[in-house]
């Protein structure tokens, strides 16, 4: 397969996954903003959404205040933010068009259809309810793309590169979403483990469709370390970091099979997977959850670079 084709498949999958993620953190922010005492902490929920999306600085160059209006605009619709939902879908479609023949017609129609729908929307005049619907629509597009790739693609290199993109991005996003809570500080007079703290954690779990899963796995009240364990260390949890890395190791092994050689990307993925397998949540909290996440994001980035260097250029 052409390196450029593999590259486009990889990035196309990353961008669709990212669009989903941005929709989800906006969902968290909307939920958090409805909680009593919202905005009373050191950083409000809208700021936290920006920080988790990794574009707080870029935002400040354009806007003076982070609120429902400005953050929604910047993260969802802005042409100035390369990771806004609109830009993600546009970039994904651009990549898709340049490698149409490597996509199945279902995948292409999902992306092209979404892009055509997006062109027809008047994004600047959406009212509140329509915004929620828009976010649901974005998640739906990402889901359909993921599903059509899974259902219709030949299990050859193209499929594995597309999986790599999806899972590198998903691991990144899961880690970031967990970090949202770190940035939303409790108001001074609220107690850790109190009602508000509880609701904030619940919002995080809901954003990744995991609240029910939590209850099934732990049959317990929401506890920060258990939530972190679920999203980091539980292989049963499909978007946990460890689960993402198992898929990454598997996909990279398939690629190694077809080329007949293992390389830095395979080694890096196995190394991270092994670390996760040997981790205990208590240890992670000893170091600090936020610090753990920062280290993980850096490792995940390093894997991304290794994939690019080994296959895509």
């Amino acid at each position: 397969m052409l390196s450029r084709t593999a590259d486009s498949l990889y990035w196309l999958s990353r961008y669709l996954e990212r669009a989903d993620y941005v929709a989800r953190i906006l969902g968290v922010a909307i939920r958090l903003s409805h909680l009593p005492g919202a905005g009373a902490g050191g950083a409000n929920e809208w700021r936290s959404a920006l920080i988790s999306a990794g574009c707080s600085d870029a935002f400040d160059k354009i806007y003076s205040e982070a609120n429902a209006e400005t953050v929604m605009e910047f993260l969802a619709f802005s042409d100035k933010n390369p990771s806004s939902i609109k830009q993600c879908l546009g970039t994904a479609r651009f990549n898709a068009r340049s490698i149409r023949t490597a996509l199945t017609s279902t995948m292409w129609e999902t992306i092209n259809g979404a892009w055509l729908d997006l062109q027809a929307m008047d994004l600047n005049s959406l009212v509140k309810r329509e915004r929620s619907l828009f976010l649901e629509w974005v998640k739906d597009v990402s889901l359909r793309f993921d599903g059509s790739a899974y259902r219709t693609m030949l299990r050859d290199e193209g499929f594995w590169f597309s999986r790599l993109g999806t899972y590198v991005e998903r691991a990144d996003n899961t880690a970031r979403i967990l970090d949202v809570k770190y940035h939303v500080l409790l108001p001074e007079n609220a107690t850790v483990g109190g009602g508000l703290d509880y609701e904030q954690w619940a919002a995080v779990l809901r954003a990744v469709n995991s609240l029910t899963a939590y209850h099934w796995v732990y049959r317990d009240n929401l506890k920060p370390w258990l939530i972190a364990e679920l999203l980091i260390l539980k292989p049963q949890m499909p978007r946990s970091l460890i689960s993402c890395y198992q898929t990454l190791v598997e996909s990279l092994d398939k690629l190694a099979e077809s080329s007949g050689r293992q390389g830095p990307a395979q080694r890096k993925a196995r190394e991270v997977a092994l670390k996760l397998e040997q981790s205990k949540i208590e240890k992670i909290f000893d170091v600090g959850l936020h610090e753990f996440i920062e280290t993980f994001l850096a490792e995940n980035n390093a894997l991304g670079s290794a994939i690019v260097e080994q296959y895509l250029i």
Binding site: M1, L2, S3, R4, A6, F161, L255, S258, S259, L312
Partner: peptide
Amino acid sequence: FVRDEVVYMRTTQ
């Protein structure tokens, strides 16, 4: 790309 007057494609392999 061309090397020694032979044309190649860059592939993942």
